[in-house]
């Protein structure tokens, strides 16, 4: 009785229950949708972030290998848990055997050859959630189907921290260095339209 008289006096009415219920339901639905979207965006961003790094690692390793650092029929791997060393790689290529050297945190001899002077971990070129998951492989083989031309393939493999899936990026080329013995072609232009 007193409340009604107060409301009448001030001319104020509270929110209707239906209005509150509808507003809360709308807000809850929207916040739910937003959180789902935000999680997906965050995951995509993180994946694409390292994808970008992986592409550039591929390109760097390929450029270095294509400059004639690795003889044809060489296989090298750079990872946090060690891999083939330079001598091991060469022995492997010459005699078809395998050799390994123990190392840690991307400082093995092969890592030094693939990325000279760079430690992937300290340079921040590893995914934050799985810094030891990056494996870089460089393989140089002659392709019988292409006039026996030497073909270099670089693969960067890493573990996605969100979904745990191992992802890879691969790049390969037949470097001019190996076949350019007499013509000495120089690339003058690379463009796109």
């Amino acid at each position: 009785m007193r409340l009604r008289s107060v409301r009448k006096a001030t001319g104020r009415k509270g929110f209707m229950l239906a209005e509150i219920v509808v507003a809360t339901a709308l807000l809850a639905t929207m916040v739910g949708a937003y959180m789902t979207f935000y999680t997906a965006v965050k995951r995509n961003f993180r994946t694409s972030d390292y994808d970008y790094v992986a592409i550039n690692l591929c390109r760097d390793a390929l450029s270095f290998a294509a400059a004639g650092t690795f003889m044809p029929s060489t296989s090298m791997t750079c990872s946090a848990s060690g891999g083939l060393g330079s001598l091991g790689g060469l022995l492997s290529s010459l005699f078809g055997g395998s050799s390994s050297s123990s190392s840690s945190a991307y400082t093995s001899a092969s890592c030094g050859l693939i990325f000279p002077g760079i430690n992937l971990k300290t340079a921040g070129l590893v995914p934050k959630g799985a810094p030891n998951s990056v494996v870089v492989s460089v393989n140089t083989v002659r392709m019988a189907s292409m006039n026996n031309a030497p073909n270099i393939t670089v693969t960067v493999q890493w573990k996605d921290t969100d979904d745990g899936i191992t992802r890879t990026r691969t790049l390969s080329t037949i470097p001019l260095f190996y076949v350019n013995d007499q013509l000495r072609l120089t690339i003058s232009n690379f463009s796109w339209t």
Binding site: Q182, L183, T186, F190
Partner: peptide, 10 residues
């Protein structure tokens, strides 16, 4: 994409 290269036989 287009790549152009040229050179003389050495």
């Amino acid at each position: 994409y287009t790549l152009e290269a040229s050179g003389q036989r050495s």
